[in-house]
Amino acid sequence: MSNLIVGVSPHIRSKNSTQRIMLDVIIALCPALIASVVIYGFRALLLTVISAAVCVCSEWVWEKGFKKPVTILDLSAVVTGILIAYNVPVGMPIWQLIVADVFAIIVVKMLFGGLGCNFMNPALGGRILMMFSFTSSITTYTYPANGIDALSSATPLAVQPELGWNSFMTLFLGNHGGVLGETCILALLIGAAYLLIRRVIKPWIPLCYLGTLLVCSWAFGAENPVLSLFMGGAVLGAFFMATDYVTSPVTNKGKIIFGVGCGLITAAIRVFGNYAEGVTFSIIIMNLLVPYIDDLTLTKPMGGTK
């Protein structure tokens, strides 16, 4: 019997490895990348690539330093890097982006034990760091038309002007000042569709999120509830960040609760709060509640006791 050697898990290998899933997410994020380059110029690509690279490096350095198995090939760091880059305007100083990347990977993810052990979405952790440490840089939105004019906090969300049909198209196509990944809704939706088709994400969270956001925005008296769906990173958040496997609930019921909660809090912060966008905070607040949501919605295994 002592000659039997048990190999290292996983023993069942499926095609659905983390790498596969992350690769799909990266592909889904590409249309938005293309759009951001078109709208904001080459620097958008530069920021995205640097961000991803720094994230991967941070993860590699940490794992080498602590003599852990190197997991950069699962591409989760790349996804985090891209998402962080999508949260900044094109004029963001590179060193600040790097600080956020390092923080997101090392503090929010690796310190807790790496992928699967974090309770907060790393990209959002990075975003909050930037929001409070580099406030002016992250709110200086360069308007794309000239590529040079800097409009501070003059995104559609912050200004909420009289929006008509023309503006709807502007918002949808993203031809306005804002952050890299949030402006071209069309591109994001294409990516989201890809993820849904590939069954990487389930529709519950995004649908409940956006649906609740719509209803609550209207209920709280926001200026333009429908258009609020296209502003402030709601689409990016709903499809790409709130759906993160590690930090969202496991069951479908849980996902619905999660989505509704996010929508509610986003609407509340947007209408009543100081910050022009509530997506980030709503998702991380719901992240905190995930252990409770899971507890409430997980069904007992057959024959098992609590």
Binding site: V107, L129, F132, S133, F134, T135
Partner: peptide, 14 residues
């Protein structure tokens, strides 16, 4: 060139 959040609440805990 400072990282503001370190001087705020989260920074303290961290």
């Amino acid at each position: 060139y400072q990282i503001g959040i370190v001087a705020q609440t989260p920074g303290g805990f961290l």
